[in-house]
């Protein structure tokens, strides 16, 4: 109970600050808009090329915006030595990881919803039918991205050239998550049943369990480092 309250207050704090300052959200919204313009220029009016490339493009957008947002997770903690405050607060440090992760997850899902909306409008797609399956796949993939991203963002928070190092560390780890989500998204958008990609969904679930477990168990080391 105490753990939940501590994790919750951290997520609440991050989201409240984000809601008031909107630093990350505003930038990511324009980033999404720009990416979609670029995709349109690159693909042209050919519908067939679009539907073949769509899952990949969608996840390209998700992961680029996700990395931008995740990389900033601990930026606010550097001001006024708040990082030291997090370390000094007595109790399990993993609650801070879970809280940060929850805040990141909500923010990323919000940005991804905007992405999907923009994709639907700009490419004239009907995504409504695919939405339940899409929600599951996107949720699993985003969790996998956020679990590793939150841990590594804490790790690189005090390293030189962290803006460069962070994506370079995260991306290779995310290879299975990316391959799995792109394949599963492709199936969902083609209207295939989820059962046809069950092996991919299982892989994503296993990856998430592994990443979350490592994050929870090692976060005190990362924060105290």
């Amino acid at each position: 109970m105490r753990f939940v309250r501590r994790a919750w207050i951290l997520a609440w704090k991050d989201l409240t600050i984000e809601w008031r300052a909107k630093e990350t959200l505003n930038s990511l919204f324009f980033f999404a808009l720009l990416l979609i313009f670029l995709f349109q220029f690159a693909l042209g009016p050919d519908r067939e090329r679009l539907s073949a490339a769509l899952p990949g493009l969608l996840w390209l957008g998700f992961i680029l915006s996700g990395l931008l947002g995740l990389g900033r997770t601990f930026a606010g903690e550097r001001d006024n030595d708040c990082w030291d405050g997090l370390r000094l607060a007595p109790g399990e440090k993993s609650a801070i990881y879970v809280g940060k992760l929850a805040g990141n997850l909500l923010l990323m899902l919000a940005v991804e919803a905007i992405f999907l909306l923009l994709f639907g409008v700009f490419f004239d797609l009907d995504l409504v039918a695919a939405l339940p399956g899409l929600a599951l796949v996107v949720g699993l993939g985003t969790l996998g991205l956020a679990a590793v991203g939150t841990l590594f963002a804490a790790m690189t928070a005090h390293v030189r050239a962290r803006e460069l190092l962070f994506p370079v560390l995260v991306l290779p780890v995310e290879v299975p998550v990316l391959l799995g989500t792109v394949k599963a998204t492709e199936a969902v958008l083609l209207g295939e049943p989820l059962g046809s990609v069950a092996h991919w969904l299982k892989l994503l679930a296993v990856a998430n369990v592994i990443y979350l477990t490592i994050g929870v168990l090692t976060f005190d080391v990362v924060l105290d480092g």
Partner: peptide, 21 residues
């Protein structure tokens, strides 16, 4: 370092650190 989040109110700052502890 004051351990203060500038975009929270004074009371919210206190509540945050209290609950986190």
């Amino acid at each position: 370092g004051t351990l203060i989040y500038e975009d929270l109110t004074a009371e919210e700052n206190l509540r945050f650190w209290r609950v986190l502890s």
